[in-house]
Amino acid sequence: MPDVEPITPRIRQSVVRIPSGESRLHGVWYASLSPEGEEERLYGVAVAFFPLGEERKGCVRVVHELAMEMAAEGWGVLSFDYAGTGESPGGFEQVTWPSLLADADAGLRFAMGMFDQHGRRKSDNNPTVFLGIRLGARIAIEAAMGSRHEIDGYCFWEPVFAGKEWLEELRRRSKFRGTGGSGQGQGEATVSDIDGYPFSAELCRNLEGLNPANVSIGNTPCKLIQISHRNLPSDGMQAVTEQLNCAEEIECLRMQPFWLESDLADYRAIINPTNSWFTSLV
């Protein structure tokens, strides 16, 4: 057998358990390795924030592919599941907005700890960046607002800031698809089946109370990626660019909403601009 050259850089994917309150969240940490198998120096840290419910499923593969690419570029990347979602312990009926934010903060602290622990920095500028997908964008921003860590850049994929409208869309979709109940007309029920997920009454109240006008990232650099049938920003996305002061940094990708797809054929269209944007911050 001839010697096989290792693929360089090699990527280590480590399944990690992230302490968050009484729970230990499931996460995956991506970092590149030297040919000797040691973890390479890192440029910075990226944390991915998933959306909820069915939308999360369609994002897992795309985030994995992006994380592999970013790790190859020298980033440490964390993707993780909030308690009650994905592979983290707990049931979805236990998810509340405060629990999501607590888990998001735990994810950020864990990622910073990994970076500090390895402590071998590749440059003087070691940015911490957030990727937020759909409702994950709002979670990312609120996690940043509540953290002592400064966030150096955001990239949001088709962000959702208005919880009430998102929940209403989910209810209507649920009705249309016949997946679970619509979550309406269930009186004082503590849990509503919406699009196949048991939303607690508290989470519904939390989401309905999310005012999009309260979202702010100050002067932090931000890139927005619109994913739709359009080549130009929608009115809603245009308003978001103004709200986040990133009118110069919007990209409109004409592609199917990947969070609704079980299998997206072409990840490159979204991975490349995201990776390039984050790397431009180093």
């Binding site: 009705k175 199917q256 609704l260």
Partner: peptide, 27 residues
């Protein structure tokens, strides 16, 4: 699939500036 079809129906509401009632929302 039903997810994409629903996405299209919602988009059509925007395009035609109409709103379908919940009970009309069937595949």
């Amino acid at each position: 699939d039903s997810v994409r079809l629903f996405d299209m129906v919602v988009g059509m509401e925007d395009d035609f500036e109409i709103t379908f009632e919940d009970e009309e929302l069937t595949l």
